[in-house]
Design a binder for these strands. Structure first.
Length: 703
DNA sequence: TCAACTCAGC
C-alpha cells in the first residue's frame, strides 16, 4: 500500500512518466526496492529499462546485484556497457571497469571519458593521461575530466596549459578552472576567467564566492553573493561556511536565518561552528529546532559537548539518541570514548567498546589506541594491555598509549619493559614515547634511570629535547629533592622554558619547601600565563604557610584585577552508569545528601580513632583553624569516597576522579580509609593514578 | 527515457 502511494505520487507529479524514468527516479531517492518493483512489474522490459535498473543498483552501492542483472540482460547496447564502466567507477572498482572497457564490442567518446574519469578518481593520473591522448576523438567533457584530474593533483599550471589548448570551452570547464585557481589561493587568475566568461551559471558564481570565502576575503565573497542573479543551497552554504571560518558568528547566523532551505548539512555546520566557538547553548538551540535529525546531527552535537567539557551532557545525548532509535555512528562512539576517558567512566567506555566490536570498528588502528587510552584513564590497565596485546600490527601511537598508561599509574618497570619490547619489535621511539618513559621514571623516583634515558634520547635515538621533556626531567630531579640541579637544567636548556617547565619546578619547591626558588618560579609563571589560576594559588599557599598575609592579600587583589578565577576542585564517581559529581564543601545538590553527610561523620569518627590528624597547611585560605578543618572534611574527593562507600558493591574497587591534584590531607585520609574499611580505592587526579589499599598508596607517597 | 564534467559539507 505504501509503495502504491509513493508510486502514485511520483507518477502524478509528472516527475517520472516513462517506466525507465520512474526507475531512475526511485533509484535517485535511494529507494532501490521501489525501483526494482517497477522494473519487475514491467510486462515488456526494454534495453532502456534494464539499463536504468542496473544504473540504479550501482548508484545505491550494490555493484554485485548490478553485475548480476547485466549478465542476465537479453540484449545490450553501448549505453549498457558505458553504464557498467561508470557504475564500477562509482563504486571504486577500477580493475573491473577496465576489464569491461577492454571487453566491450565498440566504444564511443563516453566510454573513453568514463574510463579516464575512473583513473582520475583513483589518483592514477599516468593512466588517465595515456588514455586521453590515445582517444580517437575528444569532446569538451573529456578535456574537462583530465583537467579536473590535474587540478586535483595540484598541477594547476599544467591544467592551465591544457585549458588554453582546448578547442572549445564551455561554462563547466571555465568553472573548473576557476575552482582550481581558488583552491591554490590564486584568486586574481580565477577572477580573470570569471570576468571573461560569456555565460555564467549558479555554479560559476558559487565557485568564485567559495574562493574568496576560503581565502580570508569573506567580504568580497559577500559582495558577489549579493549580486549573483540566482542562488541555490550550495551558494548559501558556501557563504555560511565563509563567515564560520572567519569566526564571524553573528553574520553566519544572519545568513543561516535567511536561508530559504536549511539543509541538514548547513544545520550541522552551524551546530559545530557555534559549539566549537564556545556558544554551546546556541548550538543546542539549532539542534533542538531541527525536525529530522540524522546520525550526523546527533554525533555533531555530542562532539560539541565532548570538546567543550560538557561530558555529562554528551552522555545524556548519546543515550537519548539511542532511545530515539538512531544507531550510534563511528564519530559518536569516538566522542563517547573520549568522554569516558575524561570522566573515567568505565561502564560507558565498555558499552561503546562492545558496540565497536559489533560493528567491527574495533579492527581499526586508531580505534585501538583510543580504547587503550580509555581503559588507562579508567584505571583498568589489565584491559588496556589486553587490547594492546590483541592488536597486530601495532603502530607507534599504540605503543605510546600503553607506555604513557603505565607511566601515569607509576608503574615504571612495566613502562620500561614495554619500551624495550617496542624497540626489539623494530619501532623507533619518538618524542611522545620519551615523555611517557621519563614520566614513568619521575613518578617512581627512578632518578638515575631517568637521567640516563634523557641522555640516550638525544645521543642514541636522535630525538631532540622539547620543553615537555625538560619538564619531565625537572620534575624527576625536583621530586627527589634535587631542586638546585633542576634549576641548573632550566638555565642551560636548549629551548626557552615554558609554563610547564616552571610549573614542574614550582611543584617541587612546594613539596621540599624551597621558598626562594618557589617565588622565582611562581613569578615566571604569572608572567607566562597571567590567566592561569594555578601559580596564584601556589604562591598564595606559600605566603600563607609563612604567615605572610599581606602578600596573600596583595596577590588576591591582583587576581581579582585580572579576573582570574580559581578553577573549583571537583571530584566524581560513576555508580551504575550514572556519574555523580561533587564540588568542594557541598553535596547538598545530591539526592542522597543526608546519607553522604552521615557517612562523612562516621568516617571522621573512625579516622580520629585511628589517629588521623588533619593537616591544615593544605588549605590556602586565611581562615581560622576550625573552618580549615571543615573545609578539609568536605573536600570533593572525600565526598566522592563517602558516596562510593555507600553505593559501590563491597567486592569492587571504588574509582574516583578529580580534576585537580589530590590534596595532601585527603591523600593521607584516603589511605587510612582504605585500611579501616578494607576497600580498594582508585583515585585518578589531574596528574596520575593513586591506588589505595590496606592503608598504602601505589604512589608510595611520592607524588 | 539509460551512459562521461564544474560549486559546499558530510
Amino acid at each position: 500500500m505504501r509503495f502504491l502511494l509513493t508510486h502514485f505520487r511520483a507518477f502524478s507529479t509528472g516527475i517520472a512518466t516513462s517506466p525507465s524514468s520512474q526507475i531512475s527516479y526511485f533509484a535517485r531517492l535511494g529507494q532501490i526496492e521501489n525501483a526494482r518493483k517497477v522494473f519487475d512489474g514491467l510486462s515488456e522490459k526494454t534495453v532502456v529499462s534494464w539499463n536504468s535498473i542496473i544504473a540504479g543498483y550501482f548508484q545505491n552501492n550494490q555493484p554485485c546485484e548490478a553485475r548480476f542483472l547485466f549478465d542476465k540482460m537479453p540484449q545490450r547496447n553501448i549505453v549498457s556497457w558505458n553504464g557498467l564502466i561508470s557504475g564500477y567507477v562509482k563504486n571504486g572498482m577500477i580493475t573491473e571497469a577496465r576489464r569491461a572497457f577492454d571487453k566491450m564490442p565498440e566504444r564511443n567518446v563516453i566510454s573513453w571519458t568514463a574510463m579516464i574519469r575512473g583513473y582520475v578518481q583513483e589518483g592514477m593520473m599516468e593512466e588517465a593521461e595515456a588514455l586521453f591522448w590515445k582517444m580517437p576523438e575528444r569532446n569538451v567533457v573529456s578535456w574537462t575530466v583530465l583537467l579536473g584530474g590535474l587540478i586535483q593533483e595540484g598541477r594547476i599550471d599544467e591544467a592551465r596549459r591544457l585549458y588554453d589548448a582546448m578547442p572549445v570551452k564551455d561554462v563547466v570547464v571555465r568553472t573548473n578552472m576557476i575552482g582550481g585557481y581558488c583552491k591554490e589561493g590564486r584568486l586574481s587568475e580565477a577572477r580573470e576567467i570569471f570576468d571573461e566568461m560569456p555565460h555564467r551559471n549558479v555554479v560559476s558564481w558559487t565557485a568564485m564566492i567559495t574562493g574568496y570565502a576560503q581565502n580570508n576575503r569573506v567580504d568580497v565573497a559577500r559582495k558577489l553573493f549579493e549580486v549573483m542573479p540566482e542562488k541555490n543551497e550550495v551558494s548559501w552554504t558556501a557563504m555560511l561556511m565563509g563567515y564560520m571560518q572567519s569566526r564571524r558568528m553573528e553574520e553566519a547566523l544572519d545568513i543561516f536565518e535567511a536561508m530559504p532551505v536549511k539543509s541538514d548539512a548547513a544545520c550541522n555546520a552551524m551546530i559545530l561552528g557555534f559549539g566549537l566557538n564556545g556558544q554551546v547553548a546556541k548550538a543546542r538551540m539549532i539542534f533542538d529546532t531541527m525536525s529530522e535529525k540524522d546520525d550526523v546531527t546527533w554525533s555533531t552535537m555530542i562532539k560539541v559537548y565532548e570538546r567543550k567539557g560538557f561530558e555529562l551532557e554528551a552522555l545524556d545525548l548519546f543515550a537519548l539518541m539511542q532511545k530515539k532509535r538512531v544507531r550510534p555512528n563511528f564519530p559518536s562512539m569516538i566522542s563517547i570514548l573520549s568522554v569516558s576517558s575524561s570522566l573515567a567512566s568505565l561502564d560507558h567506555g565498555r558499552q561503546v567498546h562492545a558496540q565497536l566490536v559489533r560493528s567491527q570498528f574495533d579492527l581499526d588502528l586508531y580505534v585501538a589506541s583510543v580504547l587503550i587510552t580509555m581503559y588507562v584513564k579508567c584505571g583498568y590497565l589489565v584491559k588496556a594491555k589486553q587490547v594492546f596485546d590483541g592488536f597486530t600490527p601495532k603502530d607507534i601511537v599504540m605503543w605510546n598509549s600503553i607506555i604513557t598508561g603505565y607511566a601515569q599509574h607509576g608503574l615504571a618497570e612495566e613502562a620500561l619493559q614495554v619500551f624495550h619490547d617496542m624497540f626489539s619489535s623494530g619501532f623507533m621511539p619518538d618524542d611522545v614515547t620519551f615523555i611517557g618513559v621519563l614520566t614513568a621514571c619521575s613518578y617512581s623516583g627512578n632518578v638515575d634511570e631517568g637521567l640516563k634515558i634523557f641522555e640516550l634520547m638525544r645521543s642514541k635515538y636522535n630525538v631532540e629535547a622539547k620543553t615537555a621533556h625538560y619538564a619531565c626531567v625537572v620534575d624527576l630531579l625536583g621530586r627527589a629533592g634535587r631542586v638546585n640541579e633542576a634549576m641548573n637544567l632550566i638555565e642551560n636548556m636548549s629551548v626557552e622554558a615554558d609554563a610547564i617547565v616552571w610549573g614542574a619546578l614550582l611543584g617541587a619547591c612546594r613539596t621540599h619547601k624551597k621558598f626562594d626558588l618557589a617565588e622565582v618560579a611562581a613569578k615566571k609563571l604569572l608572567h607566562l600565563e597571567p590567566e592561569n589560576a594555578g601559580p596564584y594559588i601556589l604562591l598564595s599557599n606559600l605566603y600563607a604557610s609563612q604567615g605572610r598575609w599581606d602578600d596573600v592579600a596583595e596577590l588576591r587583589k591582583n587576581m581579582k584585577a585580572r579576573s582570574v578565577n580559581k578553577f573549583p576542585g571537583c571530584s566524581w564517581i560513576e555508580v551504575e552508569k550514572r556519574v555523580h559529581m561533587f564540588t568542594m564543601g557541598d553535596s547538598s545538590g545530591h539526592p542522597e545528601h543526608v546519607m553522604i553527610m552521615k557517612m562523612l561523620e562516621k568516617l571522621a569518627g573512625l579516622l580520629t580513632e585511628a589517629g588521623y590528624c588533619p593537616d591544615g597547611s593544605f588549605v590556602l585560605h586565611d581562615v581560622d583553624e576550625e573552618e580549615k578543618m571543615n573545609n578539609l572534611r568536605y573536600h570533593s574527593e572525600k565526598l566522592a569516597v563517602a558516596y562510593g562507600l555507600l553505593r559501590v558493591p563491597k567486592e569492587m574497587p571504588i574509582r574516583i576522579m578529580k580534576n585537580l591534584r589530590v590534596c595532601g590531607d585527603c591523600h593521607s585520609a584516603i589511605k587510612l580509609i582504605s585500611k579501616i574499611t578494607g576497600r580498594e580505592i582508585i583515585l585518578r587526579d589531574a596528574n596520575r593514578f593513586h591506588c589505595f589499599k590496606g592503608g598504602l598508596c601505589s604512589c608510595k607517597d611520592y607524588w
